[in-house]
Amino acid sequence: MIDLLGYGAFFLSTALIFAIITLGLNLQWGLTGLFNVGIAGFVAIGAYTSALLTTPDTADRIGGFGWPILAGWLGAMVLTAAAAAFTGFATLRLKSDYLAITTFGVAVLVQLVTLNAIGLTGGPFGVAFIPRPFAGLQGNPVAFNFVNLAIIAAVTLACYLALERLSRSPWGRVLRALREDERAAVSLGKSARSYRIQAFAVGGAVMGLAGAVQAHFIGFIAPDNYLPTLTFQVWAMLMVGGSGSNRGAVMGALVVWAVWIGAGWVTSALIPTGWQARAASLQIVAIGVMLCLILLWRPQGFFGPRNGRGME
């Protein structure tokens, strides 16, 4: 029973971290129409930044400043926003495909840095001993799990409320108008571009924050956490939820994560041990097919508003 409660809290915490990333993507794609295929890269930037700022001093690695966790989160947001802003600056005067290709490149580059800049990122072994909030409670796993869940839920709620406010503000209305008509946006020129860079940067900051929150939740990060599969999961979450809707983003994250975990259970129960690694790839195939089916038959998703504020 205790185990189940603990697992429930862990499951929800992970799902809510995905929800934060999906909220960031919803600002970029759902509201502004900016295509980001490098989500994993931006999440990794946030995670590593916060980890380097907050971990205790280490001999074999740069960083380890021992800052407070909140300072680490703030640093993560600032640096990820800067990376996103630069990406947007380089590509947003061009057609939208260039942004897609460049974000894909950002994820490749970030993966490369996490693997190879060993003096900064710890290489394949990653960064350990990332301080966890309320670490004093670790002796009582249930309480510790629930405190963490509460923190993550609070961050999710804060992001949700802030993004709802932003999307209803005049700033959000401009973004929506720009999304509706790419040509008009191009003819508006500089100011349109700057609005889009802002949106991309703010969305990036939210993703970076999610990465940082997750790093402190798990206490350990490694390059393997930030593979293209992550990007793909988040896209599936937003499309299931319904792009353009923050509520949809959160719901989509919860549902897709539940399906993902459920599919994992089913495959591990039904498929012989020797084939389990392969079965895991079948799980991704299923999600890929699902994403395509949603694009074909239900582009507005399942949890967004009915009045067609989605993509169509």
Partner: peptide, 11 residues
């Protein structure tokens, strides 16, 4: 483009 990304993962 997005569909090609989904197809890529599946393939």
């Amino acid at each position: 483009v997005m569909a090609s990304f989904g197809a890529s993962m599946a393939l």
